[in-house]
Simulated assay, not measured.
Amino acid sequence: MGGLLLDHSKAGRDAEWQYTYHAISQSHVIGTEKRHVGAGTFDTFVIERNTAWTKRDPHSASKMLRAQHCDDADCTVTGYSKEVFWYAPSVGRAVLRAYSQSGDSDYIWNRSPEEILRDASSLVTELVGYSSDATCRDPHPPLLARVPSAPWYGFPLFMNDTWEFLMQRDMARE
């Protein structure tokens, strides 16, 4: 599956910007697993999605982003991501999701679901509560959810004033 869209992003309260985003993804059910998360224990299908993406043509009318410049003439960032979903049919949704990206396809795509889940550079979300009446009574503390605490492999580590840095740090909304 592939797609092209104009992505709107923010780099602060008053710093909106845009770029063109193109992605090609492949998803596969790779197995089943019993998974324990904040909301309980669920029988799940484990689904992997590998994506190759390109971000290009950044622009903004924001005064805060006037200093941004392109490091390369084509002003493009290419990357790869892997998402793993633990989908529970009993609640009709993923109860756990791990996402990581890299500038190196072999590094990211060859990692197991557990490696992605445990990696410090992964974003992990989980279900902590649910109910059938559109309210979430008695949510529980998350067991695995976290924001990345390490930078993504294959991209610049230090903040700089290039559009490429902003684009590679802006997480794709796949």
Results as ranks from 00 to 15, higher is better:
residue 1 M to H: 11
residue 1 M to F: 12
residue 2 G to V: 07
residue 4 L to N: 09
residue 5 L to P: 05
residue 5 L to S: 15
residue 6 L to C: 13
residue 6 L to Q: 12
residue 9 S to L: 09
residue 9 S to K: 10
residue 11 A to M: 11
residue 11 A to I: 06
residue 12 G to P: 12
residue 12 G to L: 13
residue 14 D to C: 11
residue 14 D to N: 14
residue 16 E to Q: 14
residue 18 Q to I: 10
residue 20 T to V: 15
residue 23 A to L: 07
residue 24 I to H: 09
residue 26 Q to M: 10
residue 28 H to V: 14
residue 32 T to L: 14
residue 32 T to K: 14
residue 32 T to C: 13
residue 33 E to I: 08
residue 34 K to F: 08
residue 35 R to K: 15
residue 35 R to N: 03
residue 37 V to E: 01
residue 37 V to G: 01
residue 37 V to A: 05
residue 40 G to N: 07
residue 42 F to E: 07
residue 42 F to G: 02
residue 45 F to T: 05
residue 45 F to P: 02
residue 46 V to P: 01
residue 46 V to A: 06
residue 50 N to K: 12
residue 51 T to I: 06
residue 51 T to A: 03
residue 51 T to V: 10
residue 52 A to R: 08
residue 52 A to N: 08
residue 53 W to V: 08
residue 53 W to G: 01
residue 54 T to C: 08
residue 54 T to A: 07
residue 55 K to E: 06
residue 56 R to Q: 11
residue 60 S to R: 04
residue 61 A to N: 15
residue 62 S to H: 03
residue 62 S to K: 07
residue 63 K to F: 12
residue 66 R to H: 14
residue 66 R to T: 14
residue 66 R to F: 11
residue 67 A to T: 12
residue 68 Q to P: 03
residue 69 H to L: 07
residue 71 D to E: 15
residue 72 D to A: 13
residue 74 D to L: 12
residue 74 D to A: 13
residue 74 D to T: 11
residue 76 T to E: 06
residue 77 V to E: 00
residue 77 V to G: 05
residue 79 G to T: 00
residue 80 Y to L: 01
residue 82 K to Y: 03
residue 82 K to G: 04
residue 83 E to S: 13
residue 85 F to V: 02
residue 85 F to P: 00
residue 86 W to G: 00
residue 86 W to T: 00
residue 86 W to Y: 09
residue 86 W to I: 00
residue 86 W to R: 00
residue 87 Y to H: 05
residue 87 Y to M: 02
residue 93 R to G: 08
residue 93 R to I: 06
residue 93 R to S: 10
residue 94 A to P: 06
residue 95 V to H: 00
residue 96 L to V: 05
residue 98 A to S: 03
residue 99 Y to N: 02
residue 101 Q to A: 09
residue 102 S to A: 09
residue 107 Y to H: 05
residue 107 Y to G: 01
residue 108 I to R: 05
residue 112 S to D: 05
residue 112 S to I: 01
residue 114 E to R: 08
residue 115 E to D: 11
residue 116 I to R: 01
residue 116 I to V: 13
residue 117 L to F: 06
residue 117 L to E: 02
residue 117 L to A: 08
residue 118 R to G: 10
residue 119 D to L: 02
residue 120 A to N: 12
residue 120 A to L: 10
residue 121 S to A: 15
residue 122 S to F: 00
residue 123 L to M: 11
residue 124 V to H: 01
residue 128 V to L: 08
residue 128 V to I: 15
residue 129 G to W: 09
residue 130 Y to C: 06
residue 131 S to N: 11
residue 131 S to M: 10
residue 134 A to S: 15
residue 134 A to W: 15
residue 134 A to R: 15
residue 135 T to H: 12
residue 140 H to A: 15
residue 141 P to C: 09
residue 142 P to H: 13
residue 142 P to M: 11
residue 142 P to E: 02
residue 144 L to I: 07
residue 144 L to G: 07
residue 145 A to E: 02
residue 146 R to W: 00
residue 147 V to D: 13
residue 149 S to R: 10
residue 149 S to P: 04
residue 149 S to I: 11
residue 153 Y to N: 10
residue 154 G to H: 03
residue 156 P to M: 05
residue 156 P to Y: 01
residue 156 P to F: 02
residue 159 M to K: 14
residue 159 M to N: 13
residue 160 N to Q: 14
residue 160 N to M: 10
residue 161 D to R: 13
residue 163 W to V: 04
residue 165 F to D: 03
residue 167 M to C: 04
residue 168 Q to R: 09
residue 168 Q to N: 11
residue 170 D to A: 03
residue 171 M to F: 00
residue 173 R to K: 10
